[in-house]
């Protein structure tokens, strides 16, 4: 089964990479954003498997984005590889620090403290006039190890670059899920006392998960900053976090792939819904979220699992 999943993932990745030059420019740019955001969702999936929800994941997204934007602005350095790596590292450091506080909490406190932390950053950025306050500021175009594409080539380069980072992240997170620490997600949700008496520090495992989710959030934000070419405080606002949580719940914690598919579907639906029913986007989000929680608590990913089970049951 695992090999079949990996094969399917690899094929999907190759297809996504090969199809891009044939797609219209706006689709490529939408998919780039979707796949950048999918990294944040992947981080939330890591937490959600342990029963933790962060209502403030935009904190790391925003830090990743601003790290990239500020480096470009102050030093003129534009290499995408280094920039995105630094975005991930910056967010990871912040996650490691706030992790000392967050790892002590579960459930509601974890969710709301994350939210409060992201709103602190929002408040600070809005008040910082040198960084453009609510307007933010723009990020100049990146280069790729000396290669400086423009126009359509730039869009495609960013898309492939994002896709490549996604693939690496997916493989690593998949390996993490199969490791001892990763497999302790359900046990920690079920019974922390037993986990402690097996000889494992639950706090440290959760701290690790916060850092993993933070790094992924930072990478996503860094890629988004380069793709959009602009950063602003709204990247740290609660609605941004809310969108990520939404995709996570919708996709479910079952698989790595769900984060990518979910994120892509979300961006597509959003771009249409905003056209068709402007002003009702949050209502659509809320309703779908409610229906998912009530009728499909394990997310859309569980539908695939259910179908497969039925298939296996057949002689």
């Amino acid at each position: 089964m695992i090999t079949r999943e990996k094969l399917a993932g690899g094929l999907a990745f190759l297809f996504a990479a090969a199809a891009a030059p044939l797609a219209p420019e706006w689709v490529v740019s939408l998919a780039t954003i979707a796949f950048a955001n999918a990294l944040v969702v992947l981080g939330l999936v890591v937490l959600w498997r342990t029963g933790l929800v962060s209502f403030g994941q935009a904190l790391y997204y925003c830090i990743g984005a601003y790290t990239v934007a500020l480096i470009v602005r102050w030093s003129g350095f534009t290499d995408a590889f280094a920039l995105v790596a630094l975005g991930g590292v910056g967010a990871g450091i912040v996650a490691a620090l706030v992790g000392f506080l967050l790892a002590r909490y579960r459930e509601i406190f974890f969710a709301m403290l994350s939210l409060a932390l992201s709103m602190i950053l929002y408040g600070v950025l809005v008040k910082t006039e040198t960084l453009g306050s609510t307007d933010g500021f723009s990020v100049s175009t990146p280069s790729f190890l000396g290669y400086r594409p423009h126009g359509e080539a730039l869009g495609l380069s960013l898309y492939w670059f994002t896709l490549a980072i996604d693939a690496v992240a997916a493989v690593l997170v998949g390996a993490y899920f199969r490791s001892v620490a990763g497999s302790l997600a359900t046990p920690i949700r079920d019974n922390e006392i037993r986990v402690e008496f097996l000889g494992v520090s639950v706090t440290r495992i959760i701290h690790t998960k916060v850092v993993i989710a933070g790094v992924l959030g930072g990478l996503g934000g860094a890629l988004a900053a380069l793709t959009i070419g602009h950063v602003d405080p709204a990247m740290s606002y609660w609605t941004t976090s809310g969108g990520f949580v939404f995709v996570t719940i919708l996709a479910g914690a079952g698989s790595v792939a769900a984060a990518f598919v979910g994120s892509l579907v979300f961006e597509m639906v959003r771009s249409f819904a905003v056209d068709i029913m402007p002003g009702l986007w949050q209502m659509v989000l809320g309703s779908v979220l409610l229906l998912t929680i009530l009728f499909l608590p394990d997310g859309l990913g569980s539908l695939v699992a259910r179908l497969r089970k039925r298939e296996e049951a057949k002689p």
Binding site: F55, E107, L285, L290, I293
Partner: peptide, 11 residues
């Protein structure tokens, strides 16, 4: 919490 959050979005 997620349920009340979804309701909040709708409202």
């Amino acid at each position: 919490v997620l349920v009340t959050y979804a309701t909040f979005l709708i409202l």
